[in-house]
Design a protein around this nucleic acid. Structure first.
Length: 586
DNA sequence: GCCGTTTTCGGCCCGACTGTTTTCAGTCG
């Protein structure tokens, strides 16, 4: 029973309780617990082992017991009982946009509909329009909802959603009477995947903004169009929500629509205790039935009014940031400007699209002081990996390049060396000794047993020539699951061996993810944040890695490639001097 | 079901849009 699976069970219990029409706060408790667990990163078994379950926010006696039951037996009685009450198809029906628990329950009770397929057939046959509370439009909307669910059931990777949002914003600036405009929602928090795009506008001509928005040629279908809110679907099936507020409310609305939901609920609870009320329209002082607006023009004004120091959007997940803000211990988050070099990049020598000279020029143009070229190693045949002879030639080329361009910018000769099945490296130690930098990565045998895969990576870390483990879980968001590894153990072993872990900025990797990064940071493991650039234009992807690092509370001191080159080289030298066969403690 | 320098019981964030209604329920974020 994995941690991820337990989160799913709790979310499902929440949904089933909704069908049952249970107390909404009980439902919320399960939803919140599912979210807490999903964001955890650490294995629940490990949390229980150190008696930490009750310290998790939203986990009390009951839920801790259910976690224990799930860990021990793989099942939970309450969940099983609920599943007996409702056919599984009802949960799938609740996934349809615009169809919620009340409708599902009603349709099941009156027409016996217990699957998306049956619902579709009933709607097509016109059996829904005469039901109480339903009509022809609702029937049509349900069919549209089913179509949308099938077309677009997955969340969109940040790397696709972000440019799209910027495109919407640029066009609205040009075509609509906007005063201020910003992206909001999970996109502004830089989550690794995005459900719907949220865009916020202030304007004194909201109707014109709505007209301009729904008329954009990026729009495939208009779902809703009101005075302050409209929703559309793009050609790619992504939903975009636009809200328009008066300029005076822009800050309050930006805070509100940035979320997260849990962060907002927490903030509002603090506000309520102080006799305040927060909404997208502003901050209000409540006295009896009278409400006086006291702010909301900027986000800063809103946080000031509530008495909580403002923090960057990436932290607003209710993972302790409000407590840290109140205690004055918010992290000094890393920014793109802190990065002094990229230590995982490729060239045309293996599978890159840009030459060494092009990559160096682009890195220098970004203001970097160093760049490690880490082309693939010999066993990476599909990636045109370099054999020992070609690597030696490349080392010479790089040395010559530095001689010619010795002007405060240095190219480091490196390799992204494959970690073989047994944890050995793809090059002998004496060749690795000639390199300035070594990334070690898994590129094959993704399906090994957890213990075998974990030991494989740990063995690679124990070689002190390895500076960093590249994309440590190997996941490709939406396409390939992470390999099955014991992340708690890998982090402990990295700390013990003195090896760094990579935060790979490629938007379909973002590996390690935010939760694992935060665990590793807390354990004192150093990081490299690299792009894995295969072409000069990939250097810009560092933005996504930095965003993920910020979500993990990383500070410049946690990240080795924020250091000037001499300090970085000192770290590498110290690592190499370390005991080559140190064993991590279990 | 969780939670507590206002509470161990009684609270638990707040508003917009749609469709079906004629004052509101359901859904969403």
């Amino acid at each position: 029973m994995t941690t991820h699976h337990i989160a799913r069970v709790f979310a499902e219990i929440g949904q089933l309780l909704e069908l049952k029409g249970e107390n909404v706060f009980k439902i919320r408790a399960y939803e919140r617990a599912a979210q807490t667990i999903r964001a955890l990163g650490e294995d629940l078994a490990a949390v229980r082992a150190r008696d930490g379950l009750l310290d998790l926010p939203g986990i009390g006696k009951e839920l801790a017991a259910k976690i224990g039951e799930l860990l021990d037996t793989g099942k939970c009685k309450a969940h099983q009982e609920l599943l007996k009450e409702f056919p599984p198809g009802l949960l799938a029906m609740m996934e349809i946009p615009e169809v919620g628990p009340k409708s599902v329950k009603f349709l099941y009770d009156t027409l016996g509909i217990d699957s998306v397929e049956k619902l579709e057939a009933a709607a097509q046959a016109g059996h829904l329009r005469d039901l109480k509370g339903f009509g022809a439009k609702t029937e049509a909307n349900i069919l549209k909802g089913i179509e949308r669910l099938r077309k677009h059931h997955e969340r969109t990777p940040l790397g696709m959603a972000y440019p799209l949002a910027m495109e919407f914003i640029a066009r609205l600036r040009k075509k609509a009477p906007v005063t201020q405009i910003s992206h909001a929602g999970s996109l502004r928090r830089m989550c690794e995947t995005i459900g719907d795009l949220d865009i916020l506008v202030s304007s004194n001509k909201p109707a014109e903004v709505m007209d301009a928005f729904t008329a954009l040629d990026l729009v495939e279908e208009v779902i809703a169009k009101g005075d302050t809110k409209s929703s559309i679907i793009t050609e790619l099936g992504m939903q975009v929500d636009l809200r328009v507020v008066p300029d005076d409310s822009f800050g309050a609305a930006l805070q509100y629509f940035t979320g997260s939901k849990q962060h907002n609920i927490h903030l509002r609870e603090i506000a309520v205790k102080k006799g305040l009320k927060l909404s997208e329209w502003g901050v209000f002082r409540v006295k009896g039935a009278k409400e006086t607006r006291i702010g909301g023009k900027t986000e800063q004004e809103l946080y000031d009014a509530v008495g909580v120091p403002m923090m960057p959007p990436e932290l607003r997940e209710d993972r302790g940031e409000i407590e840290a803000a109140l205690a004055g211990t918010l992290p000094d988050l890393i920014t793109v400007k802190d990065i002094r070099g990229d230590c995982h990049t490729h060239t045309t020598a293996s599978d890159g699209k840009s030459t060494l000279a092009e990559m160096a020029a682009a890195a220098k143009a970004r203001g970097y002081k160093y760049l490690a070229i880490c082309d693939h190693s010999q066993s990476a045949r599909v990636a045109n990996g370099l054999d020992a002879a070609r690597l030696r030639r490349q080392i010479k080329d790089i040395r010559a390049f530095n001689q010619q361009h010795g002007d405060g910018f240095t190219v480091l000769a490196g390799s992204e060396v494959n970690i073989l099945r047994d944890g050995a490296l793809d090059f002998p130690d004496d060749l690795l000794d000639d390199l300035d930098f070594v990334v070690a990565s898994v590129h094959d045998n993704f399906k090994l047993d957890r213990s075998v895969q974990t030991t494989r990576i740990v063995r690679a870390m124990e070689n002190p020539r390895v500076c960093v483990i590249g994309h440590p879980t190997g996941r490709l968001i939406g396409r390939r699951d992470p390999y099955d590894v014991d992340m708690d153990y890998i982090i402990a072993a990295a700390k013990h061996a003195g090896c760094a872990l990579e935060l790979n900025s490629f938007p379909d990797r973002l590996d390690l993810n935010d939760a694992h990064c935060r665990m590793a940071k807390d354990a004192g493991v150093p990081f490299f944040i690299d792009t894995d650039a295969h072409a000069v234009e990939h250097f810009a992807l560092i933005d996504y890695g930095i965003a993920t690092a910020r979500r993990a509370w990383l500070e410049p001191r946690d990240v080795l490639n924020t250091r000037p080159l001499p300090q970085l080289q000192k770290w590498i030298a110290a690592r190499r001097a370390a005991n080559p066969r140190a064993k991590a403690k279990r």
